[in-house]
Nucleic acid binder design. Structure first.
Lengths: 195, 195
DNA sequence: GGTTTAACTGAACGCATGTTCAGATCAAAG
DNA sequence: CTTTGATCTGAACATGCGTTCAGTTAAACC
């Protein structure tokens, strides 16, 4: 019978993914070896293959899961509201979500070029999906007359780039807390699309 | 057979750097081998060591040179003008310069973590220097009363992130030309810091 | 035309890589 | 207590890595 209770796989599996995510973020996918990940978890390299068919799939699963979490979290939080309120909600959500998962965000952006073509297409699609959520808010604002945005797709990418850039300097113990950072960036976002 | 016809260090040196830059941008520093770079240039791997002491220095020199070019180009172009005019000049300069050297920009950002600590510190310093140029413009605008920016350093990083993001989607043969893109982004930048 | 020497080859070095797999281990099921 | 099978070890495999260097070639100089 199956070894359900106390099974190590319930513990080792997540630990493998956590170690891989941390190491990929710090050193980059290509520079991290399976032995390094295994050492972090406390097993031999061969044992990792109980949890992933290969290194590429380990990377892909981390990125896919992150993007799924991102989309699901926003969809659960997106308000039915005016474009202005939706944009404020999006701005604050993006800052909070991305700063709370810096490693996953970093890996999902930096390691795109290390994905096999098929895997790349999937992640690229998820990224476009997320951009489209913001684009829709901007288009709504134009219709409502509250935004002045001539190229909503480009404006969406510009705002996301600006917000994600926070991760390059944000430190949880820094001078500014998330509340202040949200306020600063919402101010810039609001004005950038204003009429 | 050595020293094939027409080959010379004045030619091979730049070709080595160009090949390395292209490959580093496409596949990442860790995923590119010296043999791959050599093959691109048309020599054996050992010949590369006439042009760089090692792979790490090859990467570092590419990044350092790029950052030096960036700073020198802006310093040569920065106008003595109102903060508003200086900000417009900076915005247009950044877009033109960065889209014209996509590989170097990409490498100089993505491969920071593959630099040895000493090399990292140098590039980090150059990056801060560039951010400080923009920060100074924003502070000037606050003094002049034309900008409303409570955290000039953070606003500078936010604007640079937004502008550099263009590189992720810009294609020279795309629907929008640089003239239109400059106009779109200058509009967002201008409004984002407006009073 | 002979000499010099920069530029390059080709082989070698020790070490690390992703992945496989037969066998060991041991908690839980019967 | 015996059996089961999930989990993991440890060794092996073929391949590739960055780097070194003695030797070869050909362009430049006298």
């Amino acid at each position: 019978m199956a070894r359900t209770q106390g099974s190590h796989s319930d513990i080792t599996g997540p630990r493998v993914r956590a170690a891989a995510l941390r190491l990929f973020a710090r050193q980059g996918y290509a520079a991290v070896s399976m032995r390094q990940i295994a050492s972090e978890v406390g097993v031999q390299a061969g044992a990792l293959y109980n949890y992933t068919p290969d290194k590429q799939t380990l990377l892909f699963d981390l990125m896919r899961t992150h993007m799924e979490d991102l989309l699901a979290a926003w969809d659960a939080e997106a308000p039915e509201a005016s474009a202005r309120d939706a944009l404020e909600a999006f701005t604050r959500f993006h800052i909070r979500f991305n700063t709370s998962r810096a490693d996953a965000v970093f890996v999902s952006y930096m390691e795109l070029r290390n994905l096999e073509p098929g895997n790349f297409a999937v992640i690229e699609g998820q990224r476009r999906e997320y951009e489209t959520r913001l684009e829709a808010i901007l288009r709504q604002g134009v219709v409502e007359g509250s935004f002045d945005v001539t190229e909503p797709r480009i404006a969406a990418m510009a705002l996301i780039a600006m917000l994600t850039g926070i991760n390059t300097w944000f430190r949880a113990r820094g001078r500014l807390g998330l509340v202040q950072i949200e306020a600063l960036y919402w101010d810039m976002v609001r004005k950038a699309v204003a009429v």
